[in-house]
């Protein structure tokens, strides 16, 4: 979706402050929020593409004025309220008035090391050959659905060159809504001067990862 999250190339933001750091400890709300997200029982199971899309649905003014981990809060309460597992009154009071049924036990601390060890992987074992190979010229489609997508606005309609092929990965647009549809994934190189009229150096390049259905042969 054409949301505020799709920030690559936007004008108006100021200098980066490399010295800014935030504390991370058991008593710090940001750390607890971050780790809560990795720990709670997610309705319908953990789906990173759905989680990202819900975060993108936060109103733009709230997105811009909330702390990074506060945006995680708004996302996760949205995920939970969407299925009726929490209500606004409960979130305000911190006291439960109902309990979801048949959700099993929450993730125990012993399960953390397995999750850390294995992580999640969007790659799927598909033997079919990809449509493009490194060196092929491709154009990023003008693809702007209201729903989830990982095609950044800044490359839409532009021509780039396939740099690397990464195997088949589930397409976020479909996976976010529960439809697992793997596609070949590529790093595609775009010349900065093709993307921005004020690019500083003609040889500089930007490489987003693009799924095959985002691309057409040029």
């Amino acid at each position: 979706m054409d949301g505020i999250h799709d920030m690559g190339g936007m004008h108006g933001f100021g200098p980066v402050d490399p010295s800014r750091e935030q504390p991370f400890s058991k008593t710090e709300w940001r750390a607890r929020m971050f780790c809560l997200e990795l720990s709670y029982t997610q309705p319908g199971g953990f789906n990173v593409d759905w989680l990202r899309h819900v975060l993108e649905c936060i109103p733009p003014d709230v997105y811009l004025t909330s702390d990074y981990f506060d945006r995680w809060y708004w996302r996760d309460v949205g995920v939970l309220a969407n299925v009726g597992w929490v209500s606004i009154d409960e979130l305000a009071s911190g006291v439960a008035t109902s309990r979801p049924q048949d959700v099993g036990d929450p993730l125990p601390p012993e399960a953390v090391s397995v999750m850390l060890e294995q992580g999640l992987d969007s790659r799927r074992d598909v033997a079919d050959p990809p449509a493009f190979k490194p060196g092929d010229r491709v154009r990023a489609k003008f693809h702007s659905p209201l729903g989830a997508t990982r095609l950044p606005r800044y490359v839409r309609g532009h021509v780039g060159v396939i740099e690397q092929y990464h195997g088949w990965h589930v397409l976020p647009d479909a996976n976010a809504v529960g439809d697992e549809r793997p596609e070949p994934l590529y790093s595609v190189g775009f010349l900065a001067q093709d993307l921005w009229s004020d690019a500083a150096a003609p040889g500089d390049k930007v490489f987003p990862c693009l799924w095959e259905s985002y691309l057409e042969r040029e």
Binding site: A31, L36, L80, A96, P100
Partner: peptide
């Protein structure tokens, strides 16, 4: 946000959706 996150954690624990010791364990990992 600090108050809201605290309320969310205790709410999810009460609902059987979260174990606070798991959050502590992740914080140790990171």
């Amino acid at each position: 946000p600090a108050l809201r996150v605290k309320a969310l954690e205790s709410l999810l624990v009460e609902k059987g959706l979260l174990n606070s010791a798991t959050i502590d364990r992740w914080i140790e990992v990171f």
